[in-house]
Design a protein around this nucleic acid. Structure first.
Lengths: 236, 236
DNA sequence: CGTTTTCTAAATCTTAAGATCTAGTTCTTA
DNA sequence: TAAGAACTAGATCTTAAGATTTAGAAAACG
Protein backbone atom coordinates (compact mmCIF):
# COMPACT_ATOMS: atom_id res chain seq x y z
CA UNK A 1 0.00 0.00 0.00
CA UNK A 2 1.59 3.18 -1.15
CA UNK A 3 1.89 6.29 0.94
CA UNK A 4 -0.02 8.35 -1.55
CA UNK A 5 -3.12 6.34 -0.97
CA UNK A 6 -3.40 7.85 2.44
CA UNK A 7 -2.85 11.37 1.36
CA UNK A 8 -5.76 13.63 0.70
CA UNK A 9 -5.52 15.00 -2.80
CA UNK A 10 -4.36 18.56 -3.26
CA UNK A 11 -7.41 20.60 -4.17
CA UNK A 12 -7.15 23.06 -7.04
CA UNK A 13 -9.42 25.75 -8.41
CA UNK A 14 -8.86 26.99 -11.95
CA UNK A 15 -9.74 30.57 -12.84
CA UNK A 16 -9.86 31.29 -16.57
CA UNK A 17 -12.38 33.11 -18.68
CA UNK A 18 -11.67 30.80 -21.60
CA UNK A 19 -13.77 27.77 -20.90
CA UNK A 20 -11.95 25.47 -23.29
CA UNK A 21 -8.64 26.32 -21.81
CA UNK A 22 -9.90 25.86 -18.30
CA UNK A 23 -11.30 22.47 -19.23
CA UNK A 24 -8.01 21.47 -20.78
CA UNK A 25 -6.17 22.30 -17.61
CA UNK A 26 -8.76 20.52 -15.55
CA UNK A 27 -8.38 17.30 -17.46
CA UNK A 28 -4.65 17.56 -17.38
CA UNK A 29 -4.59 17.98 -13.66
CA UNK A 30 -7.15 15.27 -12.99
CA UNK A 31 -4.86 12.79 -14.70
CA UNK A 32 -2.53 13.24 -11.75
CA UNK A 33 -3.30 11.12 -8.76
CA UNK A 34 -2.16 13.77 -6.29
CA UNK A 35 -4.42 16.55 -7.52
CA UNK A 36 -8.04 17.21 -8.19
CA UNK A 37 -9.71 20.26 -9.68
CA UNK A 38 -12.64 20.97 -7.42
CA UNK A 39 -14.00 23.95 -9.34
CA UNK A 40 -13.66 26.24 -12.34
CA UNK A 41 -14.38 29.95 -12.38
CA UNK A 42 -14.86 32.09 -15.45
CA UNK A 43 -14.47 35.42 -13.74
CA UNK A 44 -12.97 36.97 -10.68
CA UNK A 45 -16.09 37.43 -8.59
CA UNK A 46 -17.15 33.83 -8.94
CA UNK A 47 -13.59 32.80 -8.25
CA UNK A 48 -13.41 34.68 -4.99
CA UNK A 49 -16.64 33.29 -3.63
CA UNK A 50 -15.61 29.77 -4.60
CA UNK A 51 -12.25 30.25 -2.93
CA UNK A 52 -13.89 31.53 0.23
CA UNK A 53 -16.20 28.54 0.22
CA UNK A 54 -13.77 25.73 -0.56
CA UNK A 55 -10.49 27.17 0.60
CA UNK A 56 -8.51 25.20 -2.00
CA UNK A 57 -4.84 24.41 -1.61
CA UNK A 58 -3.94 26.01 -4.90
CA UNK A 59 -5.52 28.48 -7.30
CA UNK A 60 -4.44 28.61 -10.91
CA UNK A 61 -5.17 32.18 -11.93
CA UNK A 62 -5.22 33.41 -15.49
CA UNK A 63 -3.99 36.99 -15.53
CA UNK A 64 -5.15 38.02 -18.98
CA UNK A 65 -8.81 38.39 -18.28
CA UNK A 66 -11.26 41.09 -19.28
CA UNK A 67 -13.12 43.08 -16.63
CA UNK A 68 -11.23 42.81 -13.39
CA UNK A 69 -7.64 41.99 -14.05
CA UNK A 70 -6.00 38.98 -12.51
CA UNK A 71 -3.45 40.99 -10.57
CA UNK A 72 -6.17 42.68 -8.58
CA UNK A 73 -7.78 39.31 -8.13
CA UNK A 74 -4.62 37.87 -6.61
CA UNK A 75 -4.44 40.82 -4.32
CA UNK A 76 -8.02 40.27 -3.19
CA UNK A 77 -7.43 36.61 -2.56
CA UNK A 78 -4.29 37.28 -0.58
CA UNK A 79 -6.24 39.69 1.57
CA UNK A 80 -8.48 36.84 2.67
CA UNK A 81 -5.55 35.46 4.60
CA UNK A 82 -6.16 31.84 3.68
CA UNK A 83 -3.47 29.23 3.27
CA UNK A 84 -4.42 29.03 -0.39
CA UNK A 85 -1.45 29.44 -2.72
CA UNK A 86 -1.77 31.12 -6.06
CA UNK A 87 -0.05 30.27 -9.31
CA UNK A 88 -0.34 32.88 -12.03
CA UNK A 89 -0.88 31.94 -15.64
CA UNK A 90 -0.45 34.07 -18.74
CA UNK A 91 0.03 33.80 -22.43
CA UNK A 92 3.01 36.09 -22.60
CA UNK A 93 6.05 36.67 -20.48
CA UNK A 94 5.62 40.34 -19.76
CA UNK A 95 8.12 41.41 -17.15
CA UNK A 96 5.86 43.84 -15.35
CA UNK A 97 3.06 41.30 -14.96
CA UNK A 98 5.45 38.77 -13.54
CA UNK A 99 6.85 41.36 -11.21
CA UNK A 100 3.49 42.55 -9.98
CA UNK A 101 2.09 39.07 -9.54
CA UNK A 102 5.05 37.90 -7.49
CA UNK A 103 5.12 41.10 -5.53
CA UNK A 104 1.60 40.71 -4.26
CA UNK A 105 2.14 37.13 -3.26
CA UNK A 106 1.80 34.66 -6.15
CA UNK A 107 3.75 31.52 -5.39
CA UNK A 108 4.38 30.61 -8.99
CA UNK A 109 4.12 31.86 -12.53
CA UNK A 110 3.85 29.83 -15.71
CA UNK A 111 3.07 30.42 -19.34
CA UNK A 112 0.20 28.77 -21.14
CA UNK A 113 2.60 27.86 -23.88
CA UNK A 114 4.73 25.83 -21.55
CA UNK A 115 4.58 22.06 -21.60
CA UNK A 116 2.07 20.40 -19.34
CA UNK A 117 4.92 18.86 -17.39
CA UNK A 118 5.79 22.38 -16.24
CA UNK A 119 2.31 22.88 -14.92
CA UNK A 120 2.53 19.72 -12.87
CA UNK A 121 5.96 20.64 -11.63
CA UNK A 122 4.65 24.00 -10.60
CA UNK A 123 1.86 22.32 -8.66
CA UNK A 124 4.35 19.98 -7.00
CA UNK A 125 6.70 22.74 -5.95
CA UNK A 126 4.06 25.16 -4.80
CA UNK A 127 2.09 22.55 -2.90
CA UNK A 128 5.28 21.80 -1.00
CA UNK A 129 5.45 25.42 0.01
CA UNK A 130 8.11 26.46 -2.45
CA UNK A 131 8.16 29.08 -5.15
CA UNK A 132 8.01 28.01 -8.77
CA UNK A 133 9.36 30.37 -11.37
CA UNK A 134 10.96 28.91 -14.52
CA UNK A 135 14.35 30.42 -15.17
CA UNK A 136 13.20 32.37 -18.22
CA UNK A 137 10.51 34.07 -16.17
CA UNK A 138 12.88 34.47 -13.28
CA UNK A 139 15.19 36.46 -15.53
CA UNK A 140 12.30 38.59 -16.68
CA UNK A 141 11.31 39.23 -13.13
CA UNK A 142 14.75 40.39 -12.14
CA UNK A 143 15.08 42.65 -15.14
CA UNK A 144 12.04 44.47 -13.97
CA UNK A 145 12.85 44.28 -10.27
CA UNK A 146 16.34 45.67 -10.67
CA UNK A 147 15.16 48.36 -13.03
CA UNK A 148 12.55 49.37 -10.48
CA UNK A 149 15.17 49.52 -7.75
CA UNK A 150 17.46 51.61 -9.94
CA UNK A 151 14.67 54.06 -10.58
CA UNK A 152 13.92 54.20 -6.92
CA UNK A 153 17.53 55.06 -6.30
CA UNK A 154 17.68 57.57 -9.10
CA UNK A 155 14.68 59.21 -7.56
CA UNK A 156 16.47 59.55 -4.27
CA UNK A 157 19.71 60.21 -6.07
CA UNK A 158 20.49 62.87 -3.89
CA UNK A 159 23.42 60.95 -2.58
CA UNK A 160 26.43 62.88 -3.57
CA UNK A 161 26.37 66.11 -5.45
CA UNK A 162 23.75 68.69 -4.78
CA UNK A 163 22.74 67.22 -1.48
CA UNK A 164 22.99 70.17 0.78
CA UNK A 165 22.57 67.91 3.79
CA UNK A 166 26.20 66.97 3.39
CA UNK A 167 27.25 70.43 4.45
CA UNK A 168 25.67 70.09 7.86
CA UNK A 169 27.81 69.52 10.92
CA UNK A 170 27.07 66.67 13.31
CA UNK A 171 25.33 68.92 15.73
CA UNK A 172 23.26 70.50 13.00
CA UNK A 173 22.22 67.05 11.85
CA UNK A 174 21.11 66.26 15.36
CA UNK A 175 19.09 69.42 15.54
CA UNK A 176 17.55 68.80 12.14
CA UNK A 177 16.71 65.32 13.27
CA UNK A 178 14.67 66.72 16.10
CA UNK A 179 13.04 69.28 13.83
CA UNK A 180 11.86 66.41 11.63
CA UNK A 181 9.98 65.17 14.63
CA UNK A 182 8.09 68.38 14.97
CA UNK A 183 9.79 69.59 18.13
CA UNK A 184 10.02 73.25 19.15
CA UNK A 185 13.15 75.24 19.94
CA UNK A 186 12.53 74.74 23.62
CA UNK A 187 12.08 71.01 23.20
CA UNK A 188 15.25 70.67 21.16
CA UNK A 189 17.16 72.68 23.76
CA UNK A 190 16.00 70.37 26.52
CA UNK A 191 16.80 67.22 24.62
CA UNK A 192 20.28 68.35 23.70
CA UNK A 193 20.98 70.05 27.03
CA UNK A 194 21.85 73.35 25.40
CA UNK A 195 20.24 76.76 25.56
CA UNK A 196 17.39 77.81 23.35
CA UNK A 197 19.44 80.54 21.74
CA UNK A 198 22.06 78.01 20.76
CA UNK A 199 19.40 75.97 19.09
CA UNK A 200 18.31 79.05 17.21
CA UNK A 201 21.84 79.62 16.06
CA UNK A 202 22.09 76.08 14.78
CA UNK A 203 18.73 76.27 13.10
CA UNK A 204 19.62 79.48 11.35
CA UNK A 205 22.81 77.92 10.10
CA UNK A 206 20.81 74.95 8.87
CA UNK A 207 18.46 77.25 6.98
CA UNK A 208 21.33 78.93 5.24
CA UNK A 209 23.03 75.69 4.33
CA UNK A 210 19.84 74.15 3.01
CA UNK A 211 18.82 77.41 1.38
CA UNK A 212 15.39 77.47 2.94
CA UNK A 213 13.42 80.03 4.90
CA UNK A 214 11.73 78.13 7.68
CA UNK A 215 11.64 74.87 9.54
CA UNK A 216 8.88 73.35 7.48
CA UNK A 217 10.91 73.76 4.34
CA UNK A 218 13.95 72.40 6.10
CA UNK A 219 12.05 69.33 7.24
CA UNK A 220 10.62 68.79 3.77
CA UNK A 221 14.05 69.10 2.22
CA UNK A 222 15.47 66.64 4.70
CA UNK A 223 12.74 64.09 4.10
CA UNK A 224 12.92 64.38 0.34
CA UNK A 225 16.63 63.85 0.42
CA UNK A 226 16.23 60.75 2.48
CA UNK A 227 17.39 62.19 5.76
CA UNK A 228 16.86 59.50 8.33
CA UNK A 229 17.88 61.00 11.65
CA UNK A 230 20.65 58.47 11.79
CA UNK A 231 23.74 58.89 13.89
CA UNK A 232 21.52 59.62 16.80
CA UNK A 233 23.13 57.17 19.12
CA UNK A 234 26.53 58.68 19.60
CA UNK A 235 28.48 56.87 22.24
CA UNK A 236 30.41 59.56 23.96
CA UNK B 1 38.09 27.17 -37.78
CA UNK B 2 35.62 27.44 -34.96
CA UNK B 3 33.71 30.54 -34.07
CA UNK B 4 35.09 30.51 -30.58
CA UNK B 5 38.58 31.05 -31.84
CA UNK B 6 37.59 34.51 -32.91
CA UNK B 7 35.88 35.43 -29.75
CA UNK B 8 37.69 37.37 -27.09
CA UNK B 9 37.59 35.50 -23.83
CA UNK B 10 35.22 36.72 -21.17
CA UNK B 11 37.30 38.44 -18.51
CA UNK B 12 36.63 37.64 -14.88
CA UNK B 13 37.85 39.09 -11.59
CA UNK B 14 37.51 37.00 -8.44
CA UNK B 15 37.04 38.74 -5.10
CA UNK B 16 37.54 36.50 -2.08
CA UNK B 17 39.48 37.00 1.11
CA UNK B 18 40.27 33.31 1.26
CA UNK B 19 43.26 32.91 -1.02
CA UNK B 20 42.93 29.17 -1.42
CA UNK B 21 39.35 29.42 -2.41
CA UNK B 22 40.03 32.20 -4.84
CA UNK B 23 42.80 30.15 -6.42
CA UNK B 24 40.53 27.18 -6.72
CA UNK B 25 37.96 29.20 -8.56
CA UNK B 26 40.63 30.72 -10.73
CA UNK B 27 41.90 27.34 -11.88
CA UNK B 28 38.42 26.09 -12.41
CA UNK B 29 37.53 29.00 -14.61
CA UNK B 30 40.77 28.95 -16.54
CA UNK B 31 39.99 25.41 -17.60
CA UNK B 32 37.19 26.87 -19.67
CA UNK B 33 38.20 28.16 -23.04
CA UNK B 34 35.67 30.98 -23.00
CA UNK B 35 36.82 32.53 -19.74
CA UNK B 36 39.95 33.85 -18.15
CA UNK B 37 40.52 35.17 -14.67
CA UNK B 38 42.48 38.36 -15.12
CA UNK B 39 42.86 39.19 -11.43
CA UNK B 40 42.17 38.19 -7.85
CA UNK B 41 41.39 40.54 -5.01
CA UNK B 42 41.55 39.71 -1.32
CA UNK B 43 39.59 42.71 -0.11
CA UNK B 44 37.08 45.20 -1.30
CA UNK B 45 39.32 48.20 -1.80
CA UNK B 46 41.75 46.33 -3.98
CA UNK B 47 38.82 44.84 -5.84
CA UNK B 48 37.34 48.20 -6.69
CA UNK B 49 40.55 49.66 -8.00
CA UNK B 50 41.17 46.56 -10.09
CA UNK B 51 37.67 46.72 -11.47
CA UNK B 52 38.07 50.37 -12.35
CA UNK B 53 41.33 49.57 -14.08
CA UNK B 54 40.41 46.47 -16.03
CA UNK B 55 36.66 46.83 -16.37
CA UNK B 56 36.10 43.07 -16.44
CA UNK B 57 33.03 41.45 -17.94
CA UNK B 58 32.19 39.62 -14.75
CA UNK B 59 33.06 39.92 -11.08
CA UNK B 60 32.71 36.95 -8.76
CA UNK B 61 32.15 38.51 -5.38
CA UNK B 62 32.35 36.67 -2.10
CA UNK B 63 29.84 38.18 0.28
CA UNK B 64 31.09 36.73 3.55
CA UNK B 65 34.14 38.89 4.01
CA UNK B 66 35.44 40.67 7.07
CA UNK B 67 35.87 44.44 7.08
CA UNK B 68 33.69 45.90 4.39
CA UNK B 69 30.90 43.53 3.55
CA UNK B 70 30.33 42.30 0.06
CA UNK B 71 26.90 43.83 -0.24
CA UNK B 72 28.32 47.30 0.16
CA UNK B 73 31.02 46.35 -2.30
CA UNK B 74 28.46 45.38 -4.92
CA UNK B 75 26.73 48.66 -4.37
CA UNK B 76 29.96 50.56 -4.85
CA UNK B 77 30.76 48.70 -8.02
CA UNK B 78 27.31 49.28 -9.44
CA UNK B 79 27.73 52.97 -8.80
CA UNK B 80 30.68 53.01 -11.17
CA UNK B 81 28.23 52.49 -13.99
CA UNK B 82 30.37 49.98 -15.87
CA UNK B 83 29.04 47.15 -17.98
CA UNK B 84 30.63 44.78 -15.48
CA UNK B 85 28.22 42.16 -14.20
CA UNK B 86 28.44 40.83 -10.68
CA UNK B 87 27.81 37.31 -9.44
CA UNK B 88 27.54 36.95 -5.69
CA UNK B 89 29.04 34.03 -3.88
CA UNK B 90 28.38 32.83 -0.34
CA UNK B 91 28.72 29.81 1.83
CA UNK B 92 25.16 29.82 3.08
CA UNK B 93 21.81 30.49 1.52
CA UNK B 94 20.64 33.27 3.77
CA UNK B 95 17.48 34.79 2.35
CA UNK B 96 18.24 38.36 3.29
CA UNK B 97 21.69 38.28 1.72
CA UNK B 98 20.27 36.93 -1.50
CA UNK B 99 17.55 39.54 -1.45
CA UNK B 100 19.90 42.42 -0.80
CA UNK B 101 22.45 41.31 -3.35
CA UNK B 102 19.88 40.96 -6.10
CA UNK B 103 18.21 44.17 -5.10
CA UNK B 104 21.30 46.25 -5.60
CA UNK B 105 22.06 44.73 -8.95
CA UNK B 106 23.84 41.35 -8.72
CA UNK B 107 23.18 39.35 -11.85
CA UNK B 108 23.60 35.99 -10.23
CA UNK B 109 24.00 34.26 -6.92
CA UNK B 110 25.63 30.92 -6.23
CA UNK B 111 26.77 28.93 -3.23
CA UNK B 112 30.32 27.82 -2.69
CA UNK B 113 29.01 24.37 -1.95
CA UNK B 114 27.47 24.06 -5.36
CA UNK B 115 29.13 21.95 -8.02
CA UNK B 116 31.62 23.62 -10.29
CA UNK B 117 29.30 23.04 -13.22
CA UNK B 118 26.93 25.53 -11.59
CA UNK B 119 29.62 28.13 -11.49
CA UNK B 120 30.31 27.75 -15.17
CA UNK B 121 26.62 27.80 -15.95
CA UNK B 122 26.27 30.98 -13.97
CA UNK B 123 29.09 32.53 -15.97
CA UNK B 124 27.48 31.42 -19.22
CA UNK B 125 24.09 32.80 -18.36
CA UNK B 126 25.29 36.05 -16.91
CA UNK B 127 27.75 36.72 -19.68
CA UNK B 128 24.83 36.42 -22.09
CA UNK B 129 23.06 39.13 -20.15
CA UNK B 130 20.71 36.89 -18.27
CA UNK B 131 20.12 36.40 -14.58
CA UNK B 132 21.32 33.24 -12.91
CA UNK B 133 19.65 32.19 -9.72
CA UNK B 134 19.35 28.46 -8.95
CA UNK B 135 15.83 27.50 -8.04
CA UNK B 136 16.65 26.87 -4.39
CA UNK B 137 18.03 30.38 -4.05
CA UNK B 138 15.20 31.74 -6.13
CA UNK B 139 12.74 30.35 -3.59
CA UNK B 140 14.73 31.87 -0.76
CA UNK B 141 14.72 35.19 -2.51
CA UNK B 142 11.00 35.23 -2.94
CA UNK B 143 10.35 34.22 0.62
CA UNK B 144 12.17 37.31 1.70
CA UNK B 145 10.83 39.52 -1.05
CA UNK B 146 7.22 38.68 -0.40
CA UNK B 147 7.65 39.00 3.34
CA UNK B 148 9.18 42.43 2.82
CA UNK B 149 6.28 43.49 0.64
CA UNK B 150 3.79 42.25 3.21
CA UNK B 151 5.48 44.28 5.90
CA UNK B 152 5.53 47.32 3.67
CA UNK B 153 1.80 46.99 3.28
CA UNK B 154 1.19 46.46 6.95
CA UNK B 155 3.23 49.54 7.67
CA UNK B 156 1.15 51.72 5.41
CA UNK B 157 -2.03 50.06 6.57
CA UNK B 158 -3.07 53.24 8.14
CA UNK B 159 -5.54 53.69 5.39
CA UNK B 160 -8.87 53.34 7.02
CA UNK B 161 -9.28 53.61 10.72
CA UNK B 162 -7.51 56.25 12.71
CA UNK B 163 -6.47 58.32 9.75
CA UNK B 164 -7.36 61.79 10.88
CA UNK B 165 -6.83 63.09 7.36
CA UNK B 166 -10.25 61.67 6.53
CA UNK B 167 -11.90 64.29 8.68
CA UNK B 168 -10.56 67.16 6.60
CA UNK B 169 -12.84 69.03 4.24
CA UNK B 170 -11.87 69.55 0.62
CA UNK B 171 -10.68 73.03 1.26
CA UNK B 172 -8.68 71.97 4.23
CA UNK B 173 -7.02 69.29 2.15
CA UNK B 174 -6.09 71.91 -0.40
CA UNK B 175 -4.59 74.11 2.27
CA UNK B 176 -2.70 71.21 3.80
CA UNK B 177 -1.42 70.34 0.37
CA UNK B 178 0.14 73.76 0.09
CA UNK B 179 1.54 73.54 3.60
CA UNK B 180 3.30 70.34 2.60
CA UNK B 181 5.12 72.41 0.02
CA UNK B 182 6.45 74.76 2.63
CA UNK B 183 4.34 77.75 1.68
CA UNK B 184 3.48 80.59 4.07
CA UNK B 185 0.03 81.84 5.00
CA UNK B 186 0.40 84.69 2.56
CA UNK B 187 1.44 82.35 -0.22
CA UNK B 188 -1.46 80.00 0.40
CA UNK B 189 -3.86 82.94 0.43
CA UNK B 190 -2.59 84.11 -2.91
CA UNK B 191 -2.74 80.69 -4.50
CA UNK B 192 -6.27 80.02 -3.33
CA UNK B 193 -7.50 83.59 -3.89
CA UNK B 194 -8.69 83.93 -0.32
CA UNK B 195 -7.66 86.19 2.52
CA UNK B 196 -4.84 85.39 4.86
CA UNK B 197 -7.13 85.28 7.85
CA UNK B 198 -9.23 82.67 6.12
CA UNK B 199 -6.17 80.58 5.61
CA UNK B 200 -5.42 80.90 9.28
CA UNK B 201 -8.88 79.72 10.12
CA UNK B 202 -8.49 76.68 7.91
CA UNK B 203 -5.08 75.92 9.28
CA UNK B 204 -6.29 76.11 12.84
CA UNK B 205 -9.10 73.75 12.00
CA UNK B 206 -6.60 71.40 10.42
CA UNK B 207 -4.46 71.47 13.56
CA UNK B 208 -7.41 70.54 15.70
CA UNK B 209 -8.53 67.75 13.42
CA UNK B 210 -5.05 66.29 13.15
CA UNK B 211 -4.40 66.91 16.84
CA UNK B 212 -1.15 68.74 16.27
CA UNK B 213 0.24 72.07 17.43
CA UNK B 214 1.97 73.56 14.42
CA UNK B 215 2.41 73.32 10.70
CA UNK B 216 5.53 71.21 10.86
CA UNK B 217 3.72 68.54 12.82
CA UNK B 218 0.78 68.77 10.45
CA UNK B 219 3.04 68.30 7.45
CA UNK B 220 4.80 65.38 9.09
CA UNK B 221 1.49 63.77 9.94
CA UNK B 222 0.27 64.22 6.41
CA UNK B 223 3.41 62.74 4.89
CA UNK B 224 3.48 59.79 7.24
CA UNK B 225 -0.10 58.97 6.43
CA UNK B 226 0.62 59.04 2.76
CA UNK B 227 -1.01 62.35 1.99
CA UNK B 228 -0.20 63.08 -1.60
CA UNK B 229 -1.71 66.46 -2.33
CA UNK B 230 -4.04 64.73 -4.71
CA UNK B 231 -7.32 66.21 -5.79
CA UNK B 232 -5.45 69.33 -6.63
CA UNK B 233 -6.77 69.67 -10.10
CA UNK B 234 -10.39 70.24 -9.44
CA UNK B 235 -12.22 71.14 -12.60
CA UNK B 236 -14.77 73.65 -11.50
C1' DC C 1 -38.01 75.03 6.10
C1' DG C 2 -34.93 75.02 9.61
C1' DT C 3 -30.36 73.07 10.84
C1' DT C 4 -25.75 71.93 10.05
C1' DT C 5 -21.50 72.16 7.31
C1' DT C 6 -18.45 74.56 4.79
C1' DC C 7 -16.11 78.47 3.33
C1' DT C 8 -15.30 82.94 4.05
C1' DA C 9 -13.21 86.89 6.94
C1' DA C 10 -12.22 90.47 10.52
C1' DA C 11 -10.28 91.74 15.04
C1' DT C 12 -7.23 90.99 18.70
C1' DC C 13 -3.65 88.98 21.21
C1' DT C 14 0.36 86.02 22.52
C1' DT C 15 4.25 83.71 21.54
C1' DA C 16 7.24 80.96 18.86
C1' DA C 17 10.09 81.62 15.03
C1' DG C 18 13.53 83.64 12.56
C1' DA C 19 17.38 87.41 11.52
C1' DT C 20 21.54 89.49 12.95
C1' DC C 21 25.56 90.58 15.51
C1' DT C 22 28.90 89.60 18.85
C1' DA C 23 31.77 86.55 21.40
C1' DG C 24 33.94 82.91 24.33
C1' DT C 25 35.64 77.98 24.32
C1' DT C 26 37.48 73.93 22.42
C1' DC C 27 39.47 71.14 18.97
C1' DT C 28 41.58 70.29 14.78
C1' DT C 29 44.99 71.18 11.44
C1' DA C 30 48.26 73.46 8.48
C1' DT D 1 51.53 78.31 17.17
C1' DA D 2 48.25 80.55 14.42
C1' DA D 3 43.97 79.89 11.76
C1' DG D 4 39.78 77.98 11.12
C1' DA D 5 35.85 75.25 12.10
C1' DA D 6 32.45 73.84 15.49
C1' DC D 7 29.73 74.49 19.47
C1' DT D 8 28.17 77.37 22.63
C1' DA D 9 25.23 81.51 24.12
C1' DG D 10 23.58 86.27 25.08
C1' DA D 11 21.09 90.47 23.33
C1' DT D 12 17.87 92.57 20.36
C1' DC D 13 14.45 93.06 17.02
C1' DT D 14 10.87 91.90 13.46
C1' DT D 15 7.46 89.25 11.80
C1' DA D 16 5.13 85.05 10.76
C1' DA D 17 2.51 81.77 13.29
C1' DG D 18 -0.93 80.31 16.06
C1' DA D 19 -5.20 80.95 19.45
C1' DT D 20 -9.69 82.62 19.99
C1' DT D 21 -13.99 84.77 19.22
C1' DT D 22 -17.49 86.37 16.29
C1' DA D 23 -20.04 86.31 12.10
C1' DG D 24 -22.00 86.40 7.28
C1' DA D 25 -23.18 83.67 2.93
C1' DA D 26 -23.95 79.57 0.44
C1' DA D 27 -24.64 74.83 0.06
C1' DA D 28 -26.08 70.46 1.88
C1' DC D 29 -29.22 67.80 4.52
C1' DG D 30 -33.05 65.90 7.08
Amino acid sequence: MRRADFKRKTRVIVVDDNYDHASGIRELINLEQDYEVIANAGNVNVAISLIKKYQPDIVLMDINMPETDGITAISEIEKLGLKTRIIALTGYDEADLIYRAMKIGAKGYILKTMASAQLIRALDEVSMGKIYLPSVLCSKFFEYFQAAERNEKAYNATDDEENLLNYLTNREEEVLGLLTEGITYKGVAQQLFISETTVKTHVNNIFQKLQVNDRTQAVLYAINKGFSAKKKAKIA
